Simulated scan of single mutants.
Amino acid sequence: MIGRGIRLGAILGIPIRVDYSWIVIAVLLTAGMAVGLGESFPYLGLLSRLLLGLSACLLLFASVLAHELSHAVIALRHDVGIRSITLFIFGGAAEMLEEPRSAQAEFSIAIAGPIMSLALAGLFGAFYAMGLGLVPPPFMDVTLRLAIWNVILVAFNIVPGFPLDGGRVLRAALWGIWGELAPATRVATAVGSFFGMLVMFLGLMYVFVFDNLIGGVWFFLIGMFLRYAARASYRQMLVRQALEGVTARDLMTSDVPCVPPEMTLEAVVDEVILPRGIVEVPVVDRGLLVGMLSFKSFRGKGRAALESLTASDVMTRDFLEETISPDEDASKVLARLGSDDHRLAVVSGGVLAGIVSREDALRRLSLILELREERQNRA
């Protein structure tokens, strides 16, 4: 649903990324803050205003990140894996690898973000109250804005429309009452889609009634995003339910060409890469997976190097993050594959059992789901 963007690092083992759209917001917010500070405090120079604006932008970034990390921490406590946290033009998202296992878990995960944002709003508000008369007014202005922004973040997220936090709380409540996830998600999604339409209508009102083009376009885009996010989240839930019982063993290719560590790169190219049309080869020593050999690691090397270097010389041993168990759920496998053109090694007891690529996984899943549908129709 969201582009991978720029990876900043990891917190608690969770990759933190910034979508390219956030850069646009950072520039606009910094520039807007500089203009606003210039109107309120004419004595400030341009550099001072830009630095204050950038500081406010970074603190807002940290606030949104804290909001999403709260979701992630509670999700991990409920044994729900988190693939990554991405900050983008409309806020942020902690991408879960699976659905929560209970309505209570869903509620706890959903409410954690607004609670964190409310706490941050109170913290910035307290700093503002304590700093009045003691701290220069421009700094107080930034502090007050941060308190207000966090309140707005809470207000926006508690709207009961899926996949916003309020929509997830609504889904948790309906799930608890009805005892089923699918109908609860369907209703919460409908509310989220309806809310998106209202925001789009508000955008049109801004343009044609209030003659505010920029504000209208902004609201219209937010509404479109909410409608898209609601539908995409619902489809994702349906796919996860359809994949129940499907594991990596069902998706993997077991007939995988392997090479021994002592095999020369020339032989690897001539006997494996060119004939099989693959660019990544497992390196196996006495049945155990010891590394992964990628064509990228030695592409461009001369003939002499290919004749003298072996697979063990250039293979990567840092492949544990790219290995999965044969019993790994299919939904988690697809989440780990993402949209990248790479493969996962299926390993059992250190022994290579197979390889899963995104293309092969989707093809096999399509066949599995088609066969399931045929069986249901026959029944």
Rank of each mutant, 00 (worst) to 15 (best):
L238G: 08
L238Q: 06
L238E: 13
L238M: 10
V239M: 15
V239L: 15
V239S: 15
V239R: 13
V239H: 11
V239K: 14
R240V: 10
R240Y: 14
A242G: 13
A242I: 04
A242R: 14
A242C: 06
L243K: 11
L243A: 01
L243V: 12
E244Q: 14
E244G: 11
G245Y: 04
G245S: 09
G245E: 02
G245P: 03
V246K: 11
T247E: 10
T247G: 13
T247Q: 12
T247N: 07
T247A: 09
A248P: 07
A248M: 06
A248N: 04
D250Y: 13
L251P: 12
L251Q: 02
L251T: 03
L251H: 09
M252R: 09
M252K: 09
T253H: 06
S254F: 06
D255T: 08
D255H: 04
D255Q: 11
V256I: 05
P257L: 07
P257G: 03
P257V: 00
P257F: 11
P257I: 01
C258V: 15
C258Y: 02
C258P: 08
V259D: 12
V259R: 10
P260L: 03
P261N: 03
P261E: 03
P261S: 02
E262G: 09
E262I: 06
E262W: 12
E262Y: 13
M263G: 04
M263T: 08
T264M: 09
T264K: 14
T264R: 13
T264W: 03
T264A: 05
L265N: 08
L265W: 01
L265C: 07
L265I: 02
E266P: 05
A267G: 10
A267K: 14
V268N: 08
V268F: 05
V269D: 13
V269S: 13
D270W: 08
D270M: 10
D270A: 12
E271I: 08
E271G: 09
V272F: 01
V272S: 04
I273N: 04
I273H: 08
I273G: 08
I273Y: 07
I273P: 01
L274M: 15
R276Y: 15
R276H: 15
G277K: 06
G277A: 07
G277C: 04
E280I: 14
E280L: 13
E280D: 10
E280S: 14
E280A: 10
V281W: 06
V281T: 15
V281S: 08
P282W: 00
P282R: 00
P282T: 01
V283N: 06
V284L: 01
V284P: 03
R286M: 09
G287L: 05
L288K: 15
L288S: 10
L289G: 07
L289S: 06
V290K: 00
V290D: 01
G291I: 00
M292P: 11
M292F: 12
M292Q: 11
S294R: 12
S294C: 07
S294D: 11
S294T: 00
S294I: 00
